[in-house]
């Protein structure tokens, strides 16, 4: 199988998901910087701007969460696609990496 043939390994879906999550992350980051440099957070008494999760401002938290989701989503898609093609070794590899990431993330939350 060549690099070109592998375009059917769910690449279109991976591309779409990566694009979407990156856009969410970038949008949240830009909004966060704008609020920070324009001193808007001093005037906007908003639950959304002032809220925080895990000790991080909400917008920054959402930006980081979207980033976190990029490898998680693409690993899930690749694991499924590899298994569909009967390439179980690659499928299992992707699943193991995914489980490691989810365990590390769970340690932060719990």
């Amino acid at each position: 199988m060549t690099a070109i043939d592998e375009r059917n390994l769910g690449e279109d879906l991976i591309l779409k998901m990566m694009k979407l999550l990156l856009m969410i992350s970038i949008t949240m980051s830009i909004a966060s910087v704008i609020i920070e440099i324009s001193f808007m957070d001093q005037y906007i008494i908003s639950a959304m701007v002032n809220a925080s999760l895990l000790g991080i401002d909400l917008l920054e938290f959402l930006a980081i969460l979207a980033l976190f989701m990029i490898p998680v989503v693409r690993l899930s898609i690749m694991a499924i696609e590899f298994c569909k093609l009967g390439n179980y070794i690659n499928g299992v590899t992707e699943s193991v990496v995914l489980i490691i990431i989810l365990v590390l993330a769970a340690r932060i939350v719990i």
Binding site: V33, A63, L67, L104, I108
Partner: peptide, 19 residues
């Protein structure tokens, strides 16, 4: 994830780095 769990990520300057 490991560095975040150990408090080594300063969230305040995460946004300009992402952009």
């Amino acid at each position: 994830l490991i560095f975040f769990n150990n408090g080594f990520i300063d969230a305040v300057i995460v946004s300009p780095i992402i952009i």
